[in-house]
Structure formats: structure tokens, C-alpha cells
Design a protein around this nucleic acid. Structure first.
Length: 602
DNA sequence: GCCGTTTTCGGCCCGACTGTTTTCAGTCG
């Protein structure tokens, strides 16, 4: 079962409990666990393998046992018992927006919608026949709303169809540009999962500070949208024509800090933070901090001031996932050395080591689209100290070993000649200063048997190799683990493991292997894991980065660019590192040239 | 059912919006 399927199952249990009138905190507990599992950035089976299911926020002894049964046997008898107590046709209805457990149960019972397979279509018929409006608690408006929402439901599940980060950025930039057209907008920030830089984004959340909330909301609603979801005095939500939801929330400038904090989340971070505050007699909301005893609310203009008022240093948004950041932020303010780590920044990056140029070495996979000179120009513009060209190896099937060796030799000569001519073009004689150094690398396929798709002799013509998997993704766990271990130890010039899980977000699940064994070999051979910054990959995943750092593993953040305009995507790789709590010491390509060179060619 | 820098028992994040209601329940984030 996937994380999403398990989350859905737990939500159904929560819904059943709600219908059955169970203790409401038990219901909340199931919902919270479902939320956590849905947003997990690693496969729950990996946590189960390591016996770390109760590391998941909201999963305790009981749920750990149930989940263990579920993963081992595919079923939990306690769950089945609970689910059997309510009509099965309520569950499909829960997927329709605006219909929760209570209303679903009411509709199913009152209208005798007994067929779980057709229940949504049956409800639609009933609504069209005006049989819904007459039910207690329903009315004309709810009947038309239900029809409207069924249409949305039929149009596809928006929730399962999350965006990559650049798509979300593009929408946010458009909305922000629109909002800034009026002078009443003082500050505006994208928040929610986008601000935390989660690997995929559902809704776009935006906060605005203003003294004229009504005017700002009116102006926001002039932006073209398909459907108004809701509108109130504190904000509005719309569905755009592209199917994406945008929530805009407004706040007075003097309380904007609380708004930023509240709207950035994550949900689990906020729940933990509010419980933490409650212990101190303080109640948190998007309006400020209330002293429970005196019932007075203080407002905060900035997030910094908001966290400080709780006795915490301001926690970077990428860390707000309830992984112990609140406790650490408290320690820091007490002056102990065990506070929050100083996260790596995009400006710390000194080079990009995974670049595909248009030099045709008859590779196994796609060529890049720009010339060596064009990439060097961008590297110079980015203030990089070095750049690594890592074209795919020449295809193994179409060449003899001898041919491959010859190709690699020619390639080395070509790159060196290109590099020399670039240096001469860019700098006049007096200024010759090789500010951008070049590494000649190669991204080499890890074959199904763990061999590398580059003859040993050809390694003489590269500085270093990135070993990556591009085929046979479905091998079983032990075969895959052995395959990777073999490849990483095949040649001393293998210095990085490229996009380790080979996942493509929303398209292809990651491959299955034993991370602990890979960590061990990376630690003993000082091999880096790549954080591939391509927004469809973001691989190594952030949760693995977090674990790996605790094992002493270091990383290299690369773009895997196939064109020069992709080099700017490095920022998304930096975000992954930050979400994994990486400092610049954990990221090898923050080192200046001499130190990096020494590491690469050790 | 979860959870602990005053607790292993006794609490549990907080508020907005909507529709159907005359004070609240359901849903959502």
C-alpha cells in the first residue's frame, strides 16, 4: 500500500468513528496520523523497515501496531470491524468537496443510497430531483452546492494532482504581481507548502498585510478565476481556470507576523507549537498570542517577534515539520550549543557538477542543448568557482569498448580546447584569471548487474564519475541494494551517486533499496549523495537527507541541466538540503575550488 | 488514540466560513 492509500484508510476510520459518535479526540488522532502519513516525504515501508513508525507525528503505540499489521499482512482486523459498522456507500461521498462524515451518513440513510459503486451518481440524481433540499439540515443552497461540488469531483481529483515547485512559483508570482497593483497592499508573501518548499504543492497560499482588507479582497477577486470557493472579511479562496486553488488571507500590518506564522504551517508544526505555548499559558492564533489568564491578545509585526515571544528563535520555514525544531529553537535561545543548525544558502554554492552539454559523444541518454562556452558563461555570471560537465556515457550497446575509449579521449581533448578558447575570449591578457574552473566528469549508467557502463580504461579521461540508475527500476530490494553497492565500489573515481531513488515526482515511484547499506558505503568511501535539483526529481528526498546527515554523509547539489536556463533551478536543490537540515558543511560544493578539487580527485 | 522541560493521567490548536438556523453544526485548513 502506498502512503496515500494508508492515509485514505485512516481517514475512513476517522469518518466511521465520527458517524459512530466516538470520542472526538480519538477521531482527531486518526486524522492527524493520516495527515502525517500523506505528507511523509519517504515511503512508509522504509520507516517500517527501520522500526521507526512511531517517529511519524501522531503515530503512537496503538497505531504503530495497526500499521505494522497492515504493512505485513495487508489488513487490520480492528479497522475492518470499525468500517463494517457504517454503510459502505458513505466513503465514496467523502471525496466530494463539502461533504464530510455527518452529511454523507445523513444523505446515505435518508435517501437509501446503498450502492457504494454508484453512490455519487445516485446522489446527483436525487439532487436533480430536488430530494436533497427537503432533508433536515439541508436546503436549496446546499442542494445546488452538492451538484456543483459533484461536478468538481467528476472533473478529477485536484488533491492527487500536485504541482511541481516552478509551476507553483509561476502562479504565485502572477497573483502577487496582480495584488501589488494597488497601493493598499503593503506586504505580500507566498506561504504554506510553497514557502516551506515542499517537493510538490497542492494549493497556493498567499498572505497580505494591509489596513484596508475589504479593498484588497475586492481587488484579488478581479483576477480571472473559474469559481469563488469562499469569501470573508479575512480572505478569499478561488479555483483558477487551470484547476488550481488560491487562498489569499489578509491581516493588519501590526499582526502580520502571526499571520505569516499561522499560514506557513506545517499543520503538525502549528499543532506542536500551540501545545507548547499552551503549557506556558499562551494561546496562539493568526491574530497574535493570547494570555489565557488575562484574556489579552498581543500582536506581532514579524514572525521573528512572534517566535521570540514564545522563548524561541525564529525557525526557518523549511524546518517547520515537527521534527524536533521547536525544542531545538528553545535551546538556542537559552544559549546552549544544541540549537538550530545554520542552514545552507543558495549563495553558498560554488559550483554545479552535473551539466550536460551539446557535445555529441553518442550517449546512452539525451544530450544537452547548449555549448560548453554557453554553460561557462552562466557559471561565470553565477559567480561559480567551478563547473562539472557530466555528459552521459557513450551508449554501451552501439559501441565496442575500444570505440568508447576513443570517444572519451576525443571528448577530453575537445573540452580542454573549448575551455582554453573560452578563457581567452572572456578575459583579456592582463586579466587572465581562471575564475571558473572546469571538471571533466561523466554520468555513467549503473547496469542491472551493478557494472558501470564505462570501460575501466576510459576512466583515464575523466576527473570523476557520477554513477546513476536509468534502467531496470523494478528490481527487488536486495538485488537493487547489491547492484548499487557494487557500482559505487567499482572504481575510485566514482565520487557521487546521482539522483539515488531515480523517482520522477507524480510519475514514477523511487527504486527500492536499503538506505542503511548505501549510507555505510558512502561513509567509508567518502562518496557523496547527489541532491538532484531538477524539480521533477528533488532526489535525494529531503527526509533521507535528514537521516543521512545524522550518519555523516555529505552531499553535492547539482542541477542535471540539459540547457543553460536550467542552471537556475539549483535553488530547489538548496531547498531540499535545507528541509533536510543541512548546513554548508554537509554540502561539498560549498567548498572553494582547492578544497573541492582535493575531495573530488582524492 | 496521542503525549509529556510542572503530568504515564488528563488534557488534547484555533479559527473562518457557510448554510440553516435564531444559536449552531459541519467542513475546512
Amino acid at each position: 500500500m502506498t502512503n496515500l492509500e494508508i492515509a485514505a484508510l485512516l481517514r475512513n476510520i476517522a469518518a466511521a468513528y465520527q458517524i459512530l459518535g466516538e470520542n472526538r479526540f480519538k477521531i482527531i488522532a486518526y486524522e492527524r496520523a493520516a495527515d502525517s502519513i500523506e505528507h511523509l516525504s519517504s515511503d512508509i515501508k522504509d520507516l517500517w523497515d527501520d522500526g521507526k513508525l512511531d517517529d511519524i507525528p501522531g503515530v503512537g503505540e496503538t497505531l504503530k501496531k495497526h500499521l505494522d499489521d497492515l504493512i505485513r499482512t495487508g489488513k487490520v482486523s480492528h479497522f475492518d470491524q470499525v468500517l463494517r459498522k457504517v454503510p459502505q456507500s458513505v466513503f465514496p461521498l467523502l471525496l466530494v468537496p463539502g461533504i464530510g462524515p455527518k452529511r454523507a451518513y445523513m444523505l446515505v440513510s435518508a435517501l437509501h443510497l446503498d450502492n457504494a459503486g454508484t453512490v455519487v451518481a445516485d446522489l446527483k440524481k436525487m439532487a436533480l430531483a430536488h430530494k436533497v433540499a427537503i432533508l433536515p439540515g439541508f436546503g436549496e443552497k446546499s442542494e445546488t452546492d452538492i451538484l456543483e461540488n459533484i461536478k468538481t469531483y467528476e472533473g478529477g481529483q485536484i488533491k492527487e494532482n500536485r504541482m511541481d515547485l516552478p509551476s507553483a512559483d509561476a502562479i504565485a508570482v502572477e497573483i502577487i504581481t496582480h495584488l501589488k497593483q494597488i497601493s493598499e497592499v503593503q506586504h505580500v508573501h507566498p506561504l504554506g507548502s510553497l514557502r516551506r518548499q515542499v517537493s510538490t504543492i497542492g494549493d497556493i497560499d498567499i498572505a497580505v498585510s494591509t489596513t484596508k482588507p475589504e479593498k484588497v479582497i475586492d481587488h484579488f477577486l478581479k483576477y480571472p478565476y473559474k469559481k469563488l470557493i469562499e469569501r470573508g472579511s479575512t480572505g478569499a479562496s478561488v479555483l483558477l481556470h487551470n484547476g488550481r486553488q488560491v487562498d489569499v488571507r489578509v491581516q493588519r500590518p501590526q499582526a502580520y507576523g502571526a499571520m505569516l506564522q499561522y499560514f506557513t504551517g506545517s499543520k503538525n508544526h502549528n499543532i506542536k507549537l500551540r501545545a507548547y505555548a499552551l503549557n506556558k499559558g499562551l494561546s496562539l492564533s493568526e491574530h497574535g498570542i493570547k494570555n489565557v489568564k488575562t484574556d489579552t491578545v498581543r500582536t506581532y509585526e514579524t514572525e521573528d517577534a512572534f517566535y521570540h515571544a514564545l522563548g524561541l528563535t525564529c525557525i526557518p520555514p523549511e524546518m517547520r515539520e515537527d521534527k524536533g525544531e521547536i525544542e531545538k529553537a528553545g535551546l538556542e535561545l537559552q544559549g546552549t550549543s544544541k540549537g538550530l543548525p545554520t542552514l545552507v544558502n543558495a549563495s553558498d554554492i560554488q559550483g554545479d557538477l552535473h551539466i550536460h552539454s551539446d557535445y555529441d559523444l553518442e550517449p546512452s541518454h539525451d544530450l544537452g542543448r547548449n555549448t560548453v562556452h554557453e554553460y561557462l558563461d552562466v557559471a561565470l555570471k553565477n559567480n561559480y568557482e567551478y563547473i562539472g560537465f557530466s555528459d552521459h556515457n557513450p551508449s554501451f550497446g552501439n559501441h565496442t569498448e575500444k570505440q568508447i575509449i576513443a570517444i572519451m579521449k576525443d571528448r577530453k581533448a575537445y573540452y580542454e580546447q573549448q575551455y582554453d578558447s573560452w578563457i581567452q575570449n572572456v578575459f583579456n591578457k592582463n586579466e587572465v584569471n581562471k575564475r571558473v574552473h572546469m571538471f571533466l566528469m561523466c554520468e555513467v549508467d549503473i547496469q542491472p548487474d551493478g557494472n558501470l557502463a564505462l570501460p575501466t580504461e576510459a576512466f583515464a579521461y575523466v576527473d570523476a564519475v557520477i554513477a546513476s540508475i536509468h534502467s531496470s527500476f523494478t528490481q527487488d530490494k536486495s538485488t537493487m541494494t547489491k547492484r548499487i553497492l557494487t557500482a559505487l565500489q567499482k572504481h575510485p573515481k566514482v565520487r557521487m551517486f546521482g539522483h539515488p531513488t531515480a523517482r520522477l515526482l507524480g510519475k514514477r515511484e523511487g527504486i527500492n533499496f536499503d538506505w542503511n547499506e548505501i549510507f555505510s558505503v558512502c561513509a567509508s568511501k567518502d562518496i557523496a549523495l547527489e541532491i538532484n535539483a531538477h524539480p521533477m526529481r528533488l532526489d535525494t528526498p529531503d527526509s533521507v537527507v535528514y537521516d543521512a546527515i545524522r550518519r555523516g554523509i555529505r552531499f553535492c547539489i547539482n542541477t542535471d541541466s540539459h540547457a543553460t536556463d536550467q542552471m537556475e533551478l539549483i535553488k530547489y536543490g538548496v531547498s531540499v538540503a535545507r528541509r533536510g537540515w543541512a548546513t554548508s558543511n554537509d554540502i561539498l560544493n560549498t567548498m572553494e575550488y582547492n578544497r573541492f578539487n582535493k575531495w573530488l580527485k582524492q
